[in-house]
């Protein structure tokens, strides 16, 4: 639901990094987005196309890699990767605990950009 604001930030970040590198065009933007975020890839691209129209990043493709949700067992501290739909199903394989703490899975990270 807040794709617009996130997209604006992505555009700011990539334009800043392109400046000073003699870039004529940004072609691909590689992103890593946590599975716990509720962003829709399709809308992210649509907003991006709209916002980037008159910039070096016009028509750039957003290549989105999903970062897994990682939870840590409340009892024995072992970590495991979980799918969003399985959050209520997880049980620690080491000790049987069903309570977990969120370690990661909510990041929005710009990894790198492909430019010409």
């Amino acid at each position: 639901m807040h794709e617009l604001q996130v997209t604006e930030r992505i555009l700011d970040v990539v334009l800043k990094h392109a400046a000073g590198h003699d870039v004529s065009k940004i072609v691909v933007i590689h992103l890593r987005i946590g599975e716990l975020s509720d962003l829709e890839d399709e809308w992210l691209q649509r907003y991006f196309d709209y916002l980037s129209k008159d910039t070096l990043a016009a028509n750039a493709r957003l290549a989105i890699e999903k970062a897994p949700i990682v939870m840590q067992c409340e009892s024995c501290a072992s970590s495991l990767e979980v799918r969003k739909d399985d959050l209520q199903e997880i049980v620690c394989a080491d000790c049987g605990e069903s309570r977990f703490r969120l370690v990661s899975g909510r990041e929005y990270f710009v990894k790198n950009i492909e430019v010409v």
């Binding site: 996130v6 992505i10 970040v13 990539v14 990094h17 392109a18 990041e107 710009v110 990894k111 010409v116």
Partner: peptide, 17 residues
Amino acid sequence: MDEVRLIEVKQDIHADN
């Protein structure tokens, strides 16, 4: 055709906030 180059960014979108 121009050669495609890779520029490392490694920046969290939420870092400023």
